[in-house]
Simulated scan of single mutants.
Amino acid sequence: MAGGAQLSVTDMRRSARHPVDHLVIAEHRERGDLRLHIANISAHGFMTDHSPKLERGGRVMIRLPVIGRIEAYCIWTTEDRAGFQFERIIRQDDFTAIIRELQPNPRLRSKG
């Protein structure tokens, strides 16, 4: 059985992404603690902006409301943004609760 990051996520990119404004301290194995600003999130992953330079395939551990600690893998980077895939998909009921915490403005929340 193969382990590690599955970095081919083209099908998952269709997941609804929700805009958020959330700062986290990410634990990186080689670089220690990093401040990341999560700009959008889905049940499959998140995007950061104003990110420190990270390499594709790099792993971070973050803490989110409701679910606590979760590992994520960097799947793409640009000059100041990076996209991460969670190690596992967040259950829909947990994800809905996360969005309620991170998007206090109900007009920003998805109707789905």
Rank of each mutant, 00 (worst) to 15 (best):
A2W: 11
A2N: 13
G4M: 12
G4S: 13
G4L: 09
A5T: 04
Q6E: 15
Q6W: 07
Q6A: 14
L7D: 03
S8G: 08
T10W: 09
R13H: 10
R13M: 13
R13Q: 12
R13F: 06
A16W: 02
R17Q: 07
H18Q: 11
P19A: 07
V20D: 10
V20S: 07
V20F: 08
V20H: 08
D21P: 04
D21H: 11
H22C: 12
H22T: 11
L23R: 13
L23S: 12
L23W: 14
I25S: 12
I25M: 12
A26Q: 10
A26N: 04
A26Y: 05
E27A: 12
H28L: 08
E30K: 11
E30H: 09
E30N: 14
E30T: 08
R31Q: 15
R31K: 15
G32I: 05
G32L: 10
D33C: 05
L34K: 06
L34D: 02
R35M: 12
L36C: 00
H37D: 14
H37K: 15
N40Y: 07
N40G: 06
I41S: 02
A43K: 04
A43N: 03
A43L: 06
H44V: 08
F46G: 00
F46T: 01
F46Y: 04
M47S: 07
T48P: 03
H50W: 11
S51G: 06
S51W: 01
P52I: 09
P52S: 09
K53P: 04
L54A: 03
R56L: 15
G58S: 15
G58Q: 09
R59P: 02
V60N: 00
M61P: 00
M61D: 15
R63N: 15
R63Y: 12
R63F: 12
L64S: 01
L64A: 02
V66I: 15
V66N: 02
V66C: 05
G68E: 10
G68K: 09
R69V: 11
I70C: 09
E71W: 05
E71I: 07
E71T: 13
A72G: 02
A72K: 00
A72N: 03
A72E: 00
Y73F: 15
Y73T: 06
C74V: 15
I75N: 00
I75P: 00
W76I: 05
R81I: 03
G83R: 02
G83K: 01
G83Y: 04
F84Q: 01
E87Y: 06
E87C: 05
E87N: 11
R88A: 15
R88S: 13
I89C: 06
I90P: 07
I90W: 01
Q92Y: 11
Q92M: 07
D94G: 05
T96K: 13
T96L: 13
I98S: 01
I98Y: 05
I98C: 00
I98G: 00
I98E: 01
I99L: 08
I99G: 00
I99E: 01
R100L: 14
L102M: 08
P104A: 08
P104I: 08
N105G: 04
N105E: 13
P106C: 09
P106I: 08
R107T: 09
R107M: 12
L108T: 14
L108M: 13
L108F: 09
L108E: 14
R109I: 13
R109C: 04
S110F: 09
S110P: 01
K111A: 13
G112M: 10
